[in-house]
Design a protein around this nucleic acid. Structure first.
Lengths: 153, 153
DNA sequence: CCTTATCGTAACAATTAATGTTACGCGATG
DNA sequence: CATCGCGTAACATTAATTGTTACGATAAGG
């Protein structure tokens, strides 16, 4: 399957929205994400339901952040997009009554739950304002300079 | 996308192989996994390359465990199946030069790497013999009894 | 030898999850 | 009342995993 990139995209967009400061239409945001306005509405709709952003229709409408970046963590965005598990163990369902299969699945599920706790803790500590600051440090340098610092090699 | 269940399946099979003690053909194993012999060969092939199992062709051939279960961890099996990352952050690649996108991606990648370290540590501590013992405790009770202990609700 | 059992592998189909696209309804603003 | 923009349903596209078919190589058995 294809990878779910909604979280990365939403973090990206929310930071841009904060930097721009105003109200953005789905079409503007779609261009930021190199995609289609409908995809934007779908995903932003989830954030709206959780009070992260607001929307207005009609002329002059669009989407607006409802909280400053330093009061928004990656955890908040993640939970707004999906309340279920982030990490799910790929279990087998070939013989659901086989005790060995069940024990194997249970062991994997347990390990993934542990890893998910770590992940969510990391998410909860990551403020969007922090990410925005890191992005800023990337701008001043010329292309090819300090810009690649974080995820090049 | 569909979830990768090879790890769960291989753990399941390896434990059965140890319990049976002999040499199993791809067809026998395929029945355990409710699938096709070719799928088994593909996946077991990876374990063979890492010395977890051995195979022999021709009459009387099949697959055999090369190590006892207490010298095999989930980590070993995982690495045999795939040397890459287990957990991968779903990053966005809409504007690869945008500093904001890059910072967002980098933050997520970092969090997932942390979670992966937790996961691999759990895997390394999980011996297949331990899982086998847990499965054994599941057998004696009648269906509906202690059997559901671990992953029912 | 020649038949049979088995692994090894390539090529292709089926299934499933995420994303992209088109179409249309509804409300707000000028 | 025309236009802009969200909301949503329905369908198409893309990508990853798994399933399937087909065929080659190798190792006994007779």
């Amino acid at each position: 399957m294809k990878q779910d990139s909604r979280l990365a995209r939403m973090i990206h967009v929310l930071i841009h929205m904060a930097l721009l400061g105003g109200r953005e239409t789905s079409e503007t945001i779609a261009k930021m994400l190199n995609t289609n306005p409908v995809v934007v509405r779908r995903t932003m709709g989830a954030l709206k339901r959780k009070g992260v952003v607001g929307s207005e229709g009609g002329r002059g409408g669009g989407w607006a952040l409802l909280r400053p970046l330093d009061q928004l963590t990656v955890f908040d965005v993640q939970r707004a997009l999906d309340e279920g598990q982030v990490l799910t163990a790929g279990v087998s369902e070939d013989h659901p009554t086989c005790p060995v299969e069940r024990a194997a699945n249970a062991a994997l599920v347990g390990a993934f739950e542990q890893a998910e706790r770590t992940l969510l803790k990391e998410f909860a500590e990551l403020r969007l304002s922090t990410i925005a600051e890191r992005a800023m440090k990337d701008v001043p340098g010329s292309p090819g300079g300090a810009a690649q610092r974080d995820h090049q090699a």
